[in-house]
């Protein structure tokens, strides 16, 4: 049994959210540079130029990549041989509080969302997903998730008869309907199978993958490839100004499901695809 003080989690979460909001992952930068080469639309190329210049400015550490520094989404993989000294949820929220304050990040969480919508003023509470795994470490991944892209998330409980084709059609319709709002070129996270909430979590987790890294098996990878190719035929382009690059990648995660079901969730990530992982 390994003892980990919850204050270590606080420090790590605070640092990760600050770093994630100032520096775009290098795989995302590489994908945007590649897009700039392949994009045929002049307006689209100009958007990509602005986005890449933006990443350079933000990396200086003074101004965040985007004014929407997100809902603080935290994924934890906790080794079953770890004992955490202190309250883990309190520790994570304290990390969010400190990171958003010290990093001059925007506080975007409102309490009593259906009435008062009062800002909590420290960006808490975080949305926390915990998994117990083998081992004696804690893996912490943070994802500051912007509202514009998150709002375009859709769920479909397809029938088994709709099958693979139904998934392709649904994913394309979600991206097409969203247009320029989620800040394309997007990364398309797709969760397939399980139950409604399982599919939603899979779709979100798929966004943690390196850009363009194929799915676990040939079936999934083939589906991702087809959806990506067809998405980039929609013509939406960077920021919806027309073009060939509407998505940088499609990441699908699949889980077995009930004989009656085929749950599918599409969760879009904007081009400012911020996330960062560390292990304690």
């Amino acid at each position: 049994m390994r003892e980990i003080n919850s204050s270590l989690v606080t420090e790590k979460v605070a640092r990760l959210f600050q770093e994630a909001n100032y520096s775009l992952p290098e795989d995302v930068v590489a994908a945007l540079k590649k897009a700039q080469k392949t994009e045929e639309s002049e307006r689209g190329r100009e958007v990509l130029r602005q986005v890449l210049e933006n990443a350079e400015i933000a990396a200086g550490g003074e101004i965040p990549l985007c004014q929407d520094t997100g809902v603080a989404v935290v994924f934890l993989e906790i080794g079953q041989d770890v004992h955490i000294d202190g309250d883990l949820t309190v520790a994570i929220n304290e990390g969010v509080r400190r990171g958003y304050q010290a990093g001059y990040l925007r506080k975007s969480m409102v309490v009593r969302p259906l009435s008062e919508r009062r800002n909590s003023e420290d960006n808490t509470p975080a949305v926390i997903h915990t998994e117990i795994v083998a081992g004696d470490t804690i893996k912490v991944s943070v994802m500051p998730k912007g509202g514009g892209a998150e709002n375009m998330t859709r769920l479909a409980m397809l029938t088994p008869a709709q099958g693979r084709q139904g998934i392709v059609d649904f994913a394309l319709s979600v991206v097409d309907e969203a247009g320029g709002a989620p800040c394309p070129p997007v990364i398309i996270g797709i969760g397939i199978g399980g139950t409604a909430e399982k599919a939603a979590l899979l779709a979100k987790k798929a966004l943690l993958r390196r850009v363009g890294e194929p799915g676990a098996d040939p079936d999934t990878a083939g589906l991702e490839k087809e959806i990506l190719e067809r998405t980039n035929r929609l013509g939406i382009g960077p920021m919806g100004y027309g073009g060939r690059v509407t998505a940088l990648a499609v990441h699908a995660e699949v889980f077995p499901c009930h004989i009656a079901s085929l749950p599918v969730v599409v969760n879009l990530q904007c081009h400012s695809a911020r996330h960062l992982t560390a292990t304690i």
Partner: peptide, 29 residues
């Protein structure tokens, strides 16, 4: 950023106003 609904587009045109787009995710720039 992102499209407006038919009502907004109609009112915008009728009152000779315009809707402009800025690049999302380029807040530092």
């Amino acid at each position: 950023k992102g499209k407006r609904n038919q009502t907004v587009k109609g009112v915008t045109k009728r009152h000779r106003a315009v809707y402009l787009g800025a690049t999302g995710g380029a807040g530092a720039l």
